[in-house]
Design a protein around this nucleic acid. Structure first.
Lengths: 151, 151
DNA sequence: TTGCGATCTCAACCTAACTTGAGGTCAAGC
DNA sequence: GCTTGACCTCAAGTTAGGTTGAGATCGCAA
């Protein structure tokens, strides 16, 4: 089977990629530095991207939007064959993990909100018996570990 | 009316405050630097906290937990009479705002999750008609502005 | 009065995700 | 062939929320 040759028109400059993805040029360069994309180079050392890179970058934006860090996205992409942009099947696997994460975040926020509501109602602050001031259970974790609240 | 004198036993060292709040000593110093607490000083320049400072710090922890930045917390506390720790009434006002914020966050996450579910089901990635790849409406904002997704 | 743990200040470092600037090169149109 | 806008690299800066370390001082208790 003949391998399709790269027509010059298939190669996209970084500015064009930026325009099409909404990313800044510097962000794209940064993503390359992080190993998230690997553009080709011209003889003059300028980056040239493939169409699939745009999808790849869009995927990164979405995954980021869903709460993954660049490091996590990188490792998700790294598990795919070199240079491949996720297919539907890949996406299914990745998204299942993301889904679990979203569920947890939502549950956590809802729990917090309920607690807050209770607190507004009870008008405490007199402390020592307020759910939000005195959370026994793990209130999720987004900082450096849970903190004891209240002296 | 006689002003209550500060008995030495009412003054708390930073280490003690750390123990009682679960904060690190360095975090407490950092909070002072940010204007969130204003401990007294001994003749030897060591910090001495009031009991109310512990509540104040606990309030900070809770507000942080609820998603406020230190800057926001600072401005919330700044609107109170100098050095006062929020009372139930203050708390009610502040928490109403926080509540709205939580609601928005939850709604956003739920919307995202639903979208993700649709996407898993539709098995797309062929793009151009996928809700998550093509979000028209504002997908919330936690970065430097919304991005166009998809080329 | 001496020992020593707790504190002090100040500066530097940390992560994440980028941006900004300086100084230099590429490439396409006229 | 020249101009000009787009690109290049590399270093440093940014924000948030702190931590870490050095070197000096406090203050309580024996």
């Amino acid at each position: 089977m003949p391998v399709a040759r790269l027509k010059p028109t298939d190669l996209i400059t970084i500015g064009e990629v930026a325009r099409r993805t909404g990313l800044s040029v510097s962000a794209i360069r940064f993503y390359e530095e992080q190993g998230l994309v690997e553009p080709l180079r011209t003889g003059g050392n300028q980056r040239r991207f493939l169409r699939s890179d745009i999808r790849r970058l869009s995927f990164i934006l979405i995954a980021q939007r869903l709460g993954l860090s660049l490091a996590e996205i990188a490792s998700a992409l790294a598990s795919l064959p070199h240079g491949r942009t996720p297919t539907a099947r890949d996406w299914e696997a990745i998204s299942a993990a993301i889904r679990a994460r979203l569920d947890a975040q939502i549950a956590d926020l809802v729990r917090t909100r309920d607690r807050l509501d209770g607190c507004i109602g009870c008008g405490c602050l007199s402390l020592s018996h307020c759910a939000i001031w005195n959370p026994q259970d793990a209130l999720g974790e987004e900082g450096p570990g849970a903190r004891k609240l209240l002296a």
